[in-house]
Every structure is written in structure tokens, then in C-alpha cells.
Amino acid sequence: MIHDPATWLYPTAKGLYCAPGDFYIDPSRPVDRAVITHGHADHARPGNRSVMATRQTLDIMQVRYGERAGGCLQALNFGETITINGVNVGMAPAGHILGAAQVIVDWKGYRAVISGDYKRAIDPTCAGFEVVRCNLFITEATFGLPVFVHENAATEAARLVASLSASAHRTHLLGVYGLGKCQRMISLVRSAGYEKPIYLHGTLQGLCDYYASQGVNLGELRPFADQRPDDLRGELVLCPPSAIADRWSRRMSDPLTAFASGWMRVRARARQRDTEFPIVISDHADWPELLQTISDVEAGEIWVTHGREDALLHQVSTMGLKGRALALVGFEDEGE
């Protein structure tokens, strides 16, 4: 029984459920006991009675949800283990965003690792992915097609910095998600030698302040709202992706719109975004990283959650492993 993990760890309407431990991992609806991999809204939802996550994930949930972050918040940091109803639960870095963890579940000698979202590329804004050998590895497949090979992030950031001086008469408007991508992009352009102030759309400020408090160097950040749009020619402005298409962006005359995402690898997707300057940087594993990880963890069984699971399951079977598509509700494979 134990060796068929599907008998004690399975998807339900509320999310992935560990029956002997009586807890859910990244539930899509409020539950009594939730273990959360990381702070993105499709994984960390408000309103659970008790929440277990890394200290940083709990902090992020409080920045975002305040009182609604959860009834009882319990921190479980990387390397620590706790026992819930006889099930040992641990956390290992996932390399996705600040605080992002893989959840390690040990029950009666069988180990399952729920990776949440992860990447293997170096990212100075969070702890790097740690390989945890296991019997069952549950992986995402956001970029589960061999066409997705992300560019080297430092090279892509250098292109953006070069454009800021080559097209110095245009405001560079970079669309980023508020948690993770925003801070990583700032950190990357800083490493590429960009020292001028960076201007932020109001919704991005809170989490940038939190990253800075955790020792991530973001340099000088200024609120966009205080500026005259004409003074921002040749400057870098960050905003959520939706703001580029929204009336908000009209304040700038002829901005150069950039967007940083793994989806930018494919031209049709970049065109759908009307992006003039696509940047292929992602916080998710690309195809080679997915395959590398599946081979590194040495698991006999691979479950695939959200994304392009057809191709990845096909690959898993040609690798001689047992694969299964986990139909989990509530995850966004588009958001990145």
C-alpha cells in the first residue's frame, strides 16, 4: 500500500491531500491544515486555518493578505523537519523565488517530494534548488516542451541595459510579475552595471521593500507616481504586465515595451503581448532543467502537475519511468 503513493497522497477538489498527515499542499480552497510551497497567489491562498511554510513565504503572505494570511502560521525552515500525525514533513529550497520550498513528505520509509515551482538557474534573490533524492517526485511542467530553453539571464539583462543607452530617448517599460520576477530583474540589471534609479508602478513597492529587508540589494527605487512622464525618457520603469495594455501606460509617450518571461521564447506568444523587446528569462525550469532534475532525484515515479504535461510524460516514459498526470485544479500555467 505504502509503495503505491496514490493510496495516501492524492488530488482532491481542494488540492493535493496527504491522508495520514491530514494536510493539503498548496490547497485551492481554504482548509484546516495547509502546507505552502511558495508565495505566488495560485499556490498560497488566503483563509486557511493553519499554515505551514518557510518564514519568508509566511512573511510574503502577510504582506499580501494581512490578517487573512491564515489563522495559525507556523514557520518550517530549510533543513528542519516536523512530524504531523506520524508523517515527517521537511523543506528544501526550490530556487523559484524568495522563500520557495520543495515539500518533503516521509511516511513509513517512503519519500515523496512536491517541488512546487522551481528552477535550477542561478538566482541571487533566493536560495538555490537543492536535489532531494526520493521515491516519488511531483514536478511542474510550465515549460514542458523541448522548444523552451531559457536564455542566460545575465546576457538577457545586458541586452536590456544596452538598449537603455542605445534608445535613450524612449522610456523602457518592463512588464514583470510583482513577486519574484520584479526583484530578480532589478537585481540582474544591477549586476549588469545599471546604477540609475529604477521607477516602480505603485503595486510593486511593497514586495520590493520586503526583499530589501531580507538583504537582497535592489539599489535605488523610486515611485513612478511622483515623476513627470517626460522626465522618464531613457529611464527604466517596472510595472505589472496588465498595466502595459492599460490606460496607465498612456502617460508615457512612445515607450519601448519589454516583457520578461519564458513564454517570450516563442514569437507568437511575444506578439500576443505586443512586446517590442521580449526577454527570455523565467523563474521556472526550462526543458533541459526539467529533464536534469527528473534524472537527479532518482525517483521511480514522476507525477506532473500543471503545464504542458503531454510532452513531459512522453519523455518520462522514454526514460523508463512511471509517469502520471495530476489533474490539479486552480494552478495557472500561464502566469509567470
Binding site: L145, V266, R267, A268, R308, A311, H314
Partner: peptide, 24 residues
């Protein structure tokens, strides 16, 4: 270089043969 199943899934997603080859 590439498994035919993966090539087909990729070509369908990308929508352009030259681009698919350049990526694969």
C-alpha cells in the same frame, strides 16, 4: 536530433516550422 512525438507537439505549439527548428 529529436523524438518525432516531441517534434510534432512543439511544431503545433510554435506554429512555424523554421522557428520550431531554430528552437529545437
Amino acid at each position: 536530433h529529436v523524438d518525432p512525438v516531441l517534434y510534432k507537439l512543439s511544431r503545433d505549439y510554435v506554429g512555424d516550422t523554421a522557428e520550431t527548428v531554430s528552437l529545437l
